[in-house]
Simulated scan of single mutants.
Amino acid sequence: MTTLQVELGARRYPIHIDRGLLDRPGLIAGCAPGRHVLIVTDANVAPLYLAKLEAALAGKLVRSVILPPGEQEKTLARFAELMDALATLGASRDATVVALGGGVIGDLAGFAAACWMRGVRLVQVPTTLLAMVDSSVGGKTAVDLPAGKNLVGAFHQPAAVIADTDTLRTLPERELRAGLAEVVKYGALGDADFFAWLETHSKDLLARDADTLAAAIERCCTHKAAIVARDETETGERALLNFGHTFGHAIEAEQGFGGLLHGEAVAAGMVLAARLSQALGLAAATDTERLAALLQGLGLPVAVPAGLAPEALLARMRLDKKNRSGRLRLILWRGIGRAEIVEDVAEDAVLAVLAG
């Protein structure tokens, strides 16, 4: 088992990465020392892994909530359901909320844990590649509003992350590819050597080679753990992890959270950010072409989906949390491995990129 640490002083926590972790009841039970446990999962994951988790927590007062799958379920109404479930459970201050699933479940369950009695213990058990390499680590929790993605939320770090890579065997192909977009992001924003490694190993990743996936997950988590330790609440460097996300979130919201998956939208968003960087004279076209080629080779989109108006997407981007005083603040790059925060980006340049 590989164990990384997110160094946050007294709130430091482990990221466990290995095959078969859900078959280690002692590990799971040890992460939930209190009497009450709320497990939050979805209808796709529950038939596969919920029984193992419940068995590992035998002897505790456990309640499981099974939600419909999909980003469209990450709402204030579902959050209220989780509050009611915790109340029905009689959850006390030493309760644990366990998020069993992908990024949607992790964000939603995490926000519930952040808010119940002003914050209770959270354990992330990611079952998608995207959640393993990104959303389960770092304490970002949120729900969406019709106006935009992740507009209501809180920073609430987990007590542990348990990434059982065996769960990737049952991950639908589209979800695997979407997760690989977030893997590529880490190379694109700050690790040119890793980006080159991904170009070499892309076929192995798509083939779900266990060792290759484990190596990629460990590399991504190492990067994120270090960045979170230096900038927990995204006042500076952590914003770089949003490379491609401002464009991507706008696409998701404009599609009503029922079109592209998050990772797919991020893939398109990264290429849009690279093209904008190129248009602003920050980066060379060859870097944009390498990024687009790698993402296309992984079966990911690299352009704005048909039918979305550039002006509507720009309006969504104005609500992004990184903006300051109504001015666009984007994560762009100076080429592979060299992302940076760019202040006061001209809207006409953004519109031109969105228009293709």
Rank of each mutant, 00 (worst) to 15 (best):
T141Y: 00
F155G: 02
N150A: 08
R174F: 07
K140T: 05
Q157F: 14
G138M: 06
L180Y: 06
A159P: 00
T170L: 12
L180V: 00
S135M: 00
D166F: 10
R174G: 07
T165K: 05
K149M: 06
T170N: 09
A181W: 01
P172A: 13
V143I: 13
G153S: 13
I162R: 11
P146G: 07
G153I: 12
G148H: 14
R174C: 08
R169A: 13
E175L: 09
I162K: 10
V161L: 03
A142D: 05
E173H: 15
P172E: 11
G138V: 07
P172T: 13
T170P: 10
A160W: 05
S136A: 15
P158H: 07
L145M: 08
H156F: 10
T167Y: 14
D164N: 12
A147V: 14
V143E: 04
E175R: 07
P172F: 06
R177H: 06
F155I: 02
T167I: 11
P146L: 10
K149S: 05
A160H: 03
A181F: 00
L168R: 10
G139W: 01
G138F: 09
A159E: 08
G179Q: 03
A147L: 15
H156E: 05
A181C: 00
E173P: 14
G153M: 13
E175Y: 06
T170G: 02
L180W: 04
S135L: 00
F155E: 00
Q157C: 11
D166A: 13
D164E: 13
K149D: 13
L168V: 12
G179E: 06
A178Q: 04
A163H: 01
T165F: 03
R177D: 08
T141K: 01
K140P: 02
A147E: 15
S136C: 02
R169W: 09
V152L: 13
G138Q: 09
S136W: 03
V161C: 06
K140M: 03
G139F: 04
A147M: 15
E182D: 04
D144H: 11
S135N: 00
R174I: 08
G138H: 08
V152F: 07
L180M: 06
L171W: 05
N150Q: 08
P158M: 06
G139M: 01
L151E: 10
A163Q: 03
R177A: 11
D144E: 04
A142G: 04
